[in-house]
Simulated assay, not measured.
Amino acid sequence: MPRSDRRLLLSIHDVSPRFERETDALVERLTRLSGGLNFAMLVVPDHWDQAPLAGDAAFRRRLRHWSDHGVEMFVHGWRHRDDSGQGGFKARHMTAGEGEFLALHRHEALQRMTAGRALIEDAIGRPVSGFVAPAWLYGPGALAALGDAGFALAEDHMRVWRPDTDATLARGPVITWASRSRPRIASSLAFAALARTALHALPTVRIGVHPGDTGVPAILQSIDATVASFARRRPAGRYRDLLPG
Rank of each mutant, 00 (worst) to 15 (best):
E98Y: 00
T95D: 04
F59H: 11
S84D: 00
P52V: 11
E98M: 07
H105T: 09
E100D: 10
D83M: 07
D82G: 02
I120H: 03
R106A: 14
G77R: 01
M94S: 14
A54G: 11
A57E: 15
L53Y: 03
L110K: 10
G77V: 00
H93G: 05
R81M: 05
D82N: 05
D68H: 04
E72F: 00
E98P: 00
A103D: 04
D68L: 12
Q50T: 13
A109F: 09
H93I: 11
H107S: 14
M113Y: 01
F101T: 02
L102C: 11
A91E: 15
Q50G: 12
W66Q: 05
R117D: 08
D49N: 14
I120P: 06
G87D: 01
D83S: 01
R64G: 03
R112E: 15
V75L: 05
M73I: 06
H107V: 14
R62M: 11
R62A: 12
G99N: 08
W78T: 00
V71W: 04
L63C: 08
L119G: 11
A118Y: 10
D49F: 12
G87R: 01
G99V: 08
L53E: 11
G97R: 09
T95N: 04
R62P: 06
L110A: 15
A109E: 13
F59I: 06
Q50F: 09
E98Q: 04
H80K: 02
A109M: 12
G70P: 03
H107P: 10
A103Q: 03
V71Y: 04
A118R: 15
G88Q: 02
R64D: 02
D68E: 13
A96R: 11
L104A: 15
A51H: 13
R79L: 00
D68I: 03
L63T: 09
S84M: 03
G87K: 00
L119A: 10
V75D: 06
E108I: 15
F59E: 11
P52T: 03
M94A: 15
M73E: 12
G77T: 02
L110P: 12
H65L: 12
M94Q: 06
E72I: 02
G87W: 04
D83R: 10
I120Y: 05
K90L: 15
H107E: 15
D56S: 11
L119W: 02
G97N: 08
M94V: 05
H105S: 11
D46C: 06
R64A: 15
L53W: 01
M73H: 03
D83Q: 06
K90H: 07
L104W: 13
G88H: 06
E100F: 05
R81F: 00
H65G: 05
L63Q: 10
H69L: 13
A115K: 12
A96N: 05
H80V: 00
L53A: 08
R92C: 10
G55T: 11
L102H: 02
E100N: 02
G97M: 05
F74W: 03
F74E: 07
D56C: 13
G85R: 12
R60W: 02
G77K: 00
R92S: 12
R60Y: 09
M94R: 15
W66I: 01
G85Y: 05
L102K: 04
H69R: 06
